[in-house]
Design a protein around this nucleic acid. Structure first.
Lengths: 351, 351
DNA sequence: ATCACACGTGGGAGCGCTCCCACGGTACCT
DNA sequence: AGGTACCGTGGGAGCGCTCCCACGTGTGAT
């Protein structure tokens, strides 16, 4: 469909040189037209474009990459096994945002999994070869060496979910603090006062921030924070069950639970049911992520929604800017951007 | 982790030339070592490898691609919107096989979605630019122009699920005929004789082959095929419901149903339940795909499993061979490979 | 009339590699 | 001794682009 027109009699694909000859101009001029430089007269531009169309010219990426020292490709690095990538809607949402924002760009997106050690070595090789202009990093654990490798190689990178408050890479995050806060404020407004919190993995910065939001919301409402109402989980269903059992044993009079993920809430719900507590009558329940689970739970789960697709879009924005600036990491003076997007509490009948 | 060692004082990455100088050999020799040519003495090879390690040399992909006219990349083209890609386990299984087979290769895998028209135009551009050495095509509809574009551009390609018996591209498929056959033979062996079939979308070659298997199994067992027992579906749950209603109205005495997908079977099951038929007592049910749905259905669904991961692996095998042969499509004489992998009937309590 | 300075343009140099030819050396034949 | 063959090796040429300098030519200020 895209290519018809005369193939060069040489048999191969037409080159810049051939287009130039055909249009009766020099090589440089064709290059300028191809790259959208404004320093070309309209007449010349038209002639070149005609020649390009007639010959079905398509630039040779390798040659361009070699000469210009760029690749026009960026990588989305997922430091997880592929299984998790498909299992968690998080990734698919990010990918959707990224794809949308990249759609009218020349940039090519590469999806790279780095779950196993072998894959990670491969990735290191890959980055060392500078085969991408920039990197999008999602779901990075606190002790992951990848970000440092990237700044060392001076490859522009944007991370989703900073590793800490002192993240050195440009980052995009949802407002975990505000999310945690809004969940608790909502429960308070419903008249609940003995609100428990099942946290996420605390080596994940976002999980900590949710706890901070939980604490501050209670504190600002004039309550003391009861440490016995806080129990660490790990984002999983099983973790939610365990934590809920502990909490119930420790504080049987609790009247609400804020779980750090919907899956965790599902685990908690199960234990509450088995203990004969009705939701929301006896215990109100709020989750986090607003995933499919939340909508299909019985009763439907109130949950904090993160704008994940939007995060994907913003990540690309920032990355492209950084690439364009060509001042990779730690360029002098320039503050690393730390973008934070608002969350939204989706109220359902569980609270 | 991967790169330490002396960076060239020039500041940039070391080149072949610098490695050659350091090892006291010529450029060609280093190239030979890098590319694993046997025509290098052991001593020289060792010297070069030492120099490579010391300098932290990593080949420049763009330069290599330009000089050698190859990209060391292949694309997995998914002619579907990203949503379906994540929704259907088929893709994740294929990807798993592909990834595994590619793991100890230099080849880079690109994932390209071509669901929308815009994306397809982009893809055509991409292929015209020969940015990949080969293409893996999955889930292609009968009238898709993509395969023809590929052979026209002479890009090696392997398709999963041939478009017809006369597929011109190299293909890998599971044995849909045998799968259909085994499902019916199984039902016959259970003493069922009035076996209905809800087909898949009949513009999908594999769906047709399943029908063929259904027919032949009955015929070979000495039964006439009752056309009123065959009702077209479309692989969806809703299609399964509709078809089941039709069948039940037409042949209330049917005692078994073979559905062309598990999802279709789920739809059929629902209608059967509503009609008061017990499974498997009154009506035995067999699905296709052996997906999660099959395992979790009540009762658990007998289903035909396709070796999807294996298909991914074989596709890569064939593609790499084709790339190595450098005789892209329709090279003279060479029969297109049409690989067919066996299916397996997983018997559960629904039959 | 002169100078200055844009602007649009052509083409050399060079990006880092692979390919291939040519060369000297060794080994084995006649 | 000369011839032939092959092996390991060096390095020229060239892949198709971008970058940048240099070169007219036209315009406005002097």
């Amino acid at each position: 469909m895209a290519t018809h027109g005369v193939r060069g009699r040489s048999g191969g694909r037409p080159t810049l040189e051939e287009v130039a000859a055909r249009a009766g101009v020099g090589r440089g001029t064709v290059s300028r037209v191809i790259n959208g430089s404004p320093r070309v007269s309209d007449a010349t531009r038209a002639a070149v474009e005609a020649a390009v169309a007639e010959l079905g010219y398509v630039p040779n990426t390798a040659a361009r990459a070699l000469a210009a020292n760029r690749t026009d490709a960026i990588a989305l690095v997922v430091p997880e096994p592929e299984t998790r990538f498909f299992a968690e809607p998080y990734f698919s949402d990010i990918l959707k945002g990224v794809g949308a924002e990249l759609a009218d760009t020349e940039m090519q997106l590469l999806l790279i999994f780095a779950g196993s050690d072998k894959e990670r070595r491969r990735l290191a090789q890959y980055l060392a070869a500078h085969r991408v202009d920039g990197v999008l990093l999602v779901s990075v654990h606190a002790d992951d060496p990848l970000p440092d490798l990237l700044s060392q190689l001076e490859i522009p990178a944007v991370i989703s979910g900073p590793r800490s408050a002192a993240e050195t890479l440009t980052s995009v995050d949802s407002d975990n603090y505000g999310g945690g806060r809004s969940a608790v404020e909502h429960l308070l407004s419903r008249g609940r006062t003995r609100i428990a919190h099942i946290t996420g993995r605390l080596d994940v910065y976002g999980a900590q921030r949710r706890v901070d939001g939980y604490r501050d919301a209670l504190h600002d409402a004039g309550f003391d924070v009861d440490e016995l109402l806080i129990e660490p989980g790990d984002f999983t269903e099983e973790g939610g069950r365990r934590a809920m059992e502990t909490l119930l044993a420790r504080r049987p009079d609790l009247d609400a639970v804020f779980a750090a993920s919907d899956v965790t809430a599902a685990g908690a719900r199960q234990v509450l049911r088995e203990a004969g507590r009705r939701i929301p009558d006896d215990v109100a329940l709020v989750g986090y992520d607003d995933s499919a689970i939340a909508r299909h739970m019985d009763p439907p789960l109130t949950s904090v929604r993160q704008p994940i697709e939007e995060m994907g879009r913003r990540m690309i924005d920032l990355l492209l800017t950084e690439i364009a600036d060509r001042r990779p990491a730690m360029s002098r003076g320039l503050e690393r951007a730390q973008m934070v997007l608002a969350t939204e509490l989706v109220v359902r009948t569980s609270s």
